[in-house]
Design a protein around this nucleic acid. Structure first.
Lengths: 225, 225
DNA sequence: CGAGAATACGAGCGATTACTCGCATTGTCG
DNA sequence: CGACAATGCGAGTAATCGCTCGTATTCTCG
């Protein structure tokens, strides 16, 4: 039944399967649809967003949307992958962060990571609709799982350098918690109506992450407070 | 809109409005329906839960459900109020917590509050479906808003004692962040498949909250690390 | 140009869901 | 008992939504 392997409308990798040659017009439509999807997801949330609403926002008929995307989840997946690419760009711009020891270094490291991350979330309101939820419908979860895993890997890499010698399981857990802290705080930041309140929430986000990681680093070094 | 003060199916407070006299049988049905709703909400999440599924789980016809609850949101509201009552009981059992100074006291205070709170969440899986989400559909948000406000008030009370002299706005913000930390961590705790992993996540929850609040207390006392 | 593919449309289909309604049963009270 | 209210049922309704399909237009390329 539902065996259609429609990866964003590309051709199946078979032998005689017709390769769909995408025109420039089609690529532009895809961009417009994803842009609209990001907007509506950000405004209404994933569940409440209808595919017809995305199409309407993009100035496109429902049929056109389904020419490029097999279903609603695929729109989410494509959008998630697009976000992942931009995040990767962000990370590349950071360059190689020096191996953190503790103390002041940690705050700088956190600022270097959290600053752009907050800016990214403010610039892309649809991002949190796909990533900042704790309970997701199965389709959405599957769609964003690969990107989630990639993010976790990146964070675990940083945490591993912060906590050298810790077993992998603990490093992974600290990474999971750190990500969750950010995911939980982002809505408080983006949802702030007042500019000053937003700045205050951003400061709280830094405080939360830094104080947690510092405590972990202290535990690692057996250095009591 | 929505001025219906439907407190679990009681009569409207008007003059000639017919007062619905509830029979013992009806009260029992209400309990069964709310119990079923808690189960299904916990398993499927709020959006994915259908009213017919709740009725079926309760062994009741859809018509019977709608005799006691005007709509899906009212079921959620009644369930939320029921949870609020149990939480209030929990808080009462804690007794008056001594005014916390800092250091060890903070850890004890956190353990006294977080321990029962985690146990409550594990015992009532439907709770997080109503409260632990950051993006809620409008109907659900309105339904649980009063209970959310009550919880915030309680936490702000504790935070106020922890951070004496802080302006109300800052106390409220620290309370909001603290609640969000717990809300974000709860799914990691309840979602742990392994018992050891769950214990570890509970420990992380304590670490997160304590290290954040300790940092806030230190900032208040101008006592650098 | 001409043929085939890609793009575009939008009415509408099938499935789902919150909720209703007519009617049967059970409880309450004089 | 008899009248009325509360409870109970479940097929049915109206609306929504993801998605399809027949058809028309535009592009590509020989």
């Amino acid at each position: 039944m539902g065996g259609t392997t429609g990866t964003t409308g590309t051709a199946e990798a078979g032998d005689g399967a017709p390769v769909r040659r995408r025109q420039a017009r089609g690529q532009k439509r895809i961009e417009e649809i994803l842009h609209a999807a990001a907007e509506v997801f950000g405004e209404q949330g994933y569940d409440a967003t209808t595919t017809n609403a995305i199409a309407a926002r993009a100035g496109v008929s429902p049929g056109s949307l389904y020419q490029f995307f097999g279903n609603k989840d695929e729109v989410a997946r494509a959008l998630a992958e697009r976000y992942a690419a931009r995040l990767e760009t962000l990370r590349a711009e950071l360059g190689t962060v020096g191996d953190p020891g503790d103390g002041q270094d940690l705050e700088e490291l956190a600022a270097d990571v959290l600053g752009p991350l907050v800016a990214f979330n403010l610039a892309h309101p649809g991002f949190k609709a796909l990533f900042a939820r704790t309970d997701m419908p199965a389709g959405l979860r599957d769609a964003v799982a690969p990107v989630q895993a990639a993010i976790h890997g990146r964070v675990a890499e940083l945490v591993g350098r912060l906590l050298p010698g810790r077993p992998d399981g603990e490093v992974a857990r600290v990474a999971t918690v750190s990500i969750q802290l950010v995911r939980g705080m982002i809505p408080l930041v983006t949802g702030a109506d007042d500019g000053r309140e937003r700045e205050a929430m951003i400061a709280e986000l830094h405080t939360v992450v830094v104080s947690y990681l510092r405590r972990q680093a202290d535990l690692a070094g057996e250095r009591p407070v």
